[in-house]
Amino acid sequence: MFKTLLLTVDVNDLKGSEKPAEAARHMALDYGAELHVMNVVPDYGMSIVGAYFSKDHNKAILKEAKAALESWAQQTLKDVPDLRLHVDQGTVYDLVLKEAEAVKADAIIVGAHKSQLKDYLIGPNAARISRHAKQSVFVIR
């Protein structure tokens, strides 16, 4: 049913990624699917903010995020045979949707943080991904 899956995780909240990762792991193993795991480092929001950081700051942040994702994946998803890791920087929901298209994902697995009334039961990134994705989206609490 699923040949390619995309799991989104936040390396700054790996505890919150446990349940979505477990669901994605089972799906990948059950279907023999390729599992792509993506972490998006948010950008600064406004270019004026980015001007206060050194030129190498982005490279260092991305390198640190990739190392954290690799370490976490080796422990959490070690038995998934076809595992690919991706780290990018920018707007989370936009980059997730672009990556899903690029890898031809059949499904996207996202976590939803504890709901607050303002989030209407799922977080803003999960909501936007669910609303705009061409693929099936599994939102795991």
Rank of each mutant, 00 (worst) to 15 (best):
A102W: 07
L7K: 01
D30E: 15
R25H: 09
A126K: 00
F138P: 08
S115H: 05
V80T: 06
G45R: 06
L62G: 01
Q74Y: 04
S130P: 07
A127S: 15
S136V: 11
L5E: 07
H26C: 13
D30A: 13
H26R: 11
P124M: 01
K118W: 00
L14C: 06
S71N: 10
I140D: 05
D10R: 01
P20K: 08
D30R: 13
A24T: 07
A65S: 10
F53S: 04
K19C: 06
S71T: 13
V11A: 02
V80K: 00
A126N: 09
I129F: 05
K78D: 09
I140A: 09
Y52E: 12
S71W: 04
V110I: 07
A28R: 03
K104W: 04
H26P: 09
A60Q: 13
A133Q: 02
L117T: 10
V139A: 01
L6N: 09
D119Q: 12
V37Q: 06
D94F: 11
V11Q: 02
T4W: 01
T91N: 14
A126H: 06
A60M: 09
H36E: 04
G16I: 04
G111D: 11
A51M: 10
N125M: 03
A73K: 02
M27H: 14
Y31N: 15
Y120G: 00
R141L: 01
Y31P: 00
L77A: 02
S115P: 14
K98Y: 02
P81E: 13
T8N: 01
E70F: 06
Q89K: 15
D82G: 02
P20H: 13
V37A: 12
L97K: 10
Q74D: 09
K15D: 12
L69A: 00
Q135M: 07
V9T: 02
I129Q: 08
K63M: 08
M38Y: 06
R84F: 11
I48H: 09
S130I: 08
F2S: 06
M38F: 13
V9P: 00
F2P: 14
Q75K: 13
A23T: 15
V37L: 08
Y93T: 04
Y44M: 08
N12E: 03
S54L: 12
G111H: 08
